[in-house]
Simulated scan of single mutants.
Amino acid sequence: MADDHEQEEFFHIRKMVLELDRLVKNGDIHSLKNPVAQPDYWRKRIKVLLATPAISASIARRAAALLAQLDRIADALKKSR
């Protein structure tokens, strides 16, 4: 089972990906100039989380779903530029 740090990290990443998705859906791409607001930044953080040896299967599945969501966000950003 994932320890508290891994769970906290997952929920932080999830919150930020949801916020990124909201910004993109609202067309607020000017807010996305910061490197932390880029899908690649969060993709890297998720990959580090997934590399944790004791990560739970549940968090691993949910993290994989966030990676798919980041792919959709990145596609939407490319289309909006």
Rank of each mutant, 00 (worst) to 15 (best):
L66Q: 00
L66R: 00
D28P: 06
N34P: 04
L50W: 06
A60L: 06
R72H: 02
R62D: 05
D71W: 04
Q69H: 04
K25A: 06
V48C: 06
R22Y: 05
L23F: 12
R72W: 01
A68L: 14
S58W: 03
K79V: 12
L18M: 14
L66Y: 00
A2Q: 07
Q69D: 03
R62L: 07
M16E: 08
R81N: 03
D3S: 03
I55L: 15
Q7G: 01
H12F: 11
Q38W: 09
Q38E: 13
L49S: 08
R61P: 00
V36Q: 14
I46Q: 01
M1A: 15
I29M: 06
Q7L: 12
F11W: 14
H5I: 05
W42E: 06
V48N: 09
V24E: 01
E9A: 02
L49Y: 07
F11S: 04
P35D: 07
Q38H: 14
V36N: 15
R22D: 08
D28H: 11
S80R: 15
A65V: 07
N26K: 15
V36P: 08
I73S: 02
R72P: 00
A57S: 10
A65N: 09
I13T: 03
I59C: 01
A76R: 13
R72L: 06
M16R: 08
V48I: 12
K33Q: 12
D4E: 13
P39G: 09
I13K: 03
Q7K: 10
D75F: 10
L32N: 05
D40H: 12
H12D: 05
A74L: 04
D3H: 05
K44V: 11
K15H: 02
R43Q: 12
V24F: 00
G27W: 09
V36T: 14
W42P: 03
I59A: 00
